[in-house]
Simulated scan of single mutants.
Amino acid sequence: MAERINPVVKAVLEWGPIAAFFLGYVKLKDETFTVAGTDYQGFIIVTAAFIPLMVICTGLLWWLSGKLSKMQVATVVLVVVFGGLSVWLNDDRFFKMKPTMIYLLFGVLLGIGLLRGQSWLRLVLEEAIPLQDEGWMILTRRVMAFFFALAIANEAVWRLMSTDAWVNFKTFGLPLAIFVFFMTQSGLFKRYNPERKDEA
Rank of each mutant, 00 (worst) to 15 (best):
V143Q: 12
T163P: 08
I178M: 13
G113P: 12
Y25S: 06
A36M: 06
E155Y: 15
G83L: 07
V79Q: 07
W120N: 05
R4A: 10
G187I: 12
W62E: 03
V55G: 02
F182R: 03
L125S: 00
L61W: 01
R4V: 08
E155W: 15
E126N: 12
A74C: 09
M54P: 01
G16E: 12
V9P: 00
G59C: 02
E134R: 14
R116F: 06
V167M: 13
L28F: 15
F106M: 06
V124D: 03
G173M: 11
V8P: 02
I18F: 07
A11D: 08
K170I: 08
F147N: 15
K27N: 08
P175T: 00
A19L: 15
P99Y: 03
V80E: 08
T140H: 11
G84D: 05
V77L: 12
W15G: 05
K98N: 10
S119A: 08
I178S: 10
V80T: 07
S119V: 03
L105E: 05
K98T: 07
G37P: 13
L115Y: 09
E127Q: 10
V35C: 00
A128N: 12
W158S: 02
T47L: 10
D133P: 07
Q132G: 04
K70R: 06
L64S: 11
L104W: 12
V124W: 03
A19N: 11
Y40I: 04
I56Y: 06
V87H: 12
M97H: 02
M101N: 11
F43K: 03
W158A: 00
I102D: 00
R141Q: 13
F181K: 13
G84E: 04
K10A: 10
R122K: 14
P194D: 10
N154Q: 13
A156N: 04
I44A: 11
F146C: 00
Q118C: 00
W166F: 15
V180Q: 09
L78I: 09
F82A: 01
D133G: 02
L114G: 01
F146E: 01
W63A: 08
K96G: 09
P17S: 03
M144A: 13
A165S: 15
L139P: 04
L61D: 04
S69W: 05
V157A: 13
V12M: 09
E155D: 14
D164K: 08
A20N: 10
V9D: 00
L104E: 02
D92L: 11
G107F: 12
A149K: 15
R159N: 15
D39M: 04
L125C: 01
R159W: 15
D164F: 06
W120V: 09
T58D: 01
L13M: 11
A153V: 08
V79G: 04
I5W: 07
Q118I: 00
V12N: 05
L188T: 15
L61Q: 10
I138V: 12
V81F: 13
M161I: 03
V167D: 14
W63E: 06
F182I: 00
A153R: 14
